[in-house]
Design a protein around this nucleic acid. Structure first.
Lengths: 230, 230
DNA sequence: CGTGAGGTTGATCGCTTTCAACGGAGGTGG
DNA sequence: CCACCTCCGTTGAAAGCGATCAACCTCACG
């Protein structure tokens, strides 16, 4: 069974005290989600929001014949369940063993009525999510396979970047299938382009789940589509 | 010069009184935008939000080599400029002659501090936008050309649907290029699949900018990817 | 040591893109 | 009024990229 240890990749979200922790008080409960276990499914009553505490979750939608599109990965500090009304419009499961904190949605909305700060913060989070989805639409609609993969690795590298050692390696908590479903590709195409990046010296792959960027400039060029012939 | 008359396709957004009209008071100014004229560009200071009053606008991002991805079309009643922080992260231009109402962003944010209703409404709008972007990601990442086009026409047909006459025809305010850039395809592919839908009797094309759905069921099947062999 | 899930690589297929030619609609100016 | 031009859309032929099908590898685990 797939059982990667939980990787602590800090979220790019502001790491300040999270406002709903205090405000929703007793309404927040922690719960564990194991690799590939579902947190909720498309169509379930959207009673809760969730904050990722540990590990990585993914939100996805599927077509009837099984084609899957991963909308986003959620890292510690990220909020899951925005963009929902009465029932969830997508499914959510753990990419690796994870821990989430559930937050009663109606309690949160009630709190937001009284605390403009909280409302503002929620709006800001929704805003950031919109921005990253716009970026992802550009990727899905207009980038080639190699550009998609380069963009993806670049985001992960920056998320995990260590100021002391910018060349430090980082873990991929998700499988090739997850990456493929996020980038709108197949596993074979992801694998082929991963080796292409390795052979051309842009990245190192000490293990299949470990990446080290060797040529950040080239990776950035590829991600932005400057590099015509690769 | 391209000069389509302005089409009044009502937005699916709740057609109730729009809260910021009242709250931002004298801060809202109307302005006209002509076909293919830019309202703002990626990188501009994000001083204003805009409400579409008339016509259709589109938000898009481009890669350096000119590849363009349209993020969304904005119809009358829709709000443009969410998902921005200090400067716009995408460009916005008119698809056909349009009229927008500008809303000072900081004035709006100030008002939202005092009026929980307004804050809640803005959050709700952001939420709806997130939901439709999730749908669009599924389309971009996992649907075939014919499924993409069917999905697109289905949304427009529903938006323009007349309860008295569900078979009524509707106008496409945007060019084939715009459709292609929205669906992540080329104009040729859009054109080919448009004729494919016409020849198979799913739609009628009295003019290139006018569509009538003849077989709604088939169109829905295609959009959801049920129809294996088309 | 067998088993199964995840990953890589090769060969081939086919859908979408690319390149190219043509046609129609609308605007302009002689 | 008509020739001309430009933009937009359609259609055909060919090319190319990513998908599909298939074989094999690796590693963790019982």
């Amino acid at each position: 069974m797939y059982n990667t240890p939980v990787h602590h990749i800090t979220s790019s979200a502001t790491p300040v005290t999270v406002p709903w922790q205090n405000l929703s008080g007793g309404n927040a409960h922690e719960c564990k989600v194991r690799t590939h276990e579902a947190l909720f499914c498309e169509g379930d009553d959207a009673e809760f929001l969730y904050e990722v505490v540990e590990g990585v979750m993914c939100n996805y939608r599927i077509l009837m014949d099984g084609r899957r599109q991963i909308i986003s990965f959620a890292y510690p500090g990220d909020l899951i369940g925005l963009g929902q009304t009465d029932c969830y419009r997508y499914s959510c499961e753990a990419v690796c063993n994870a821990k989430v904190r559930s937050i009663s949605k109606c309690a949160l909305m009630r709190d937001a009525q009284g605390h403009a700060d909280l409302g503002h913060r929620l709006f800001e989070i929704a805003t950031n999510e919109l921005a990253s989805m716009q970026e992802h639409q550009l990727l899905l609609g207009r980038k080639s396979a190699i550009e998609k993969l380069a963009s993806f690795l670049l985001v992960l590298a920056r998320k995990a970047s260590d100021e002391d050692d910018p060349q430090a390696s980082f873990k991929l908590p998700m499988t090739r299938t997850d990456i493929a479903d996020y980038l709108g590709l197949t596993i074979e195409t992801v694998s082929r382009n991963m080796t292409k990046l390795k052979l051309s010296g842009v990245i190192d792959l000490p293990q299949t789940t470990t990446v080290r960027v060797r040529d950040m400039f080239k990776l950035e060029e590829l991600a932005e589509g400057d590099e015509c012939n690769f």
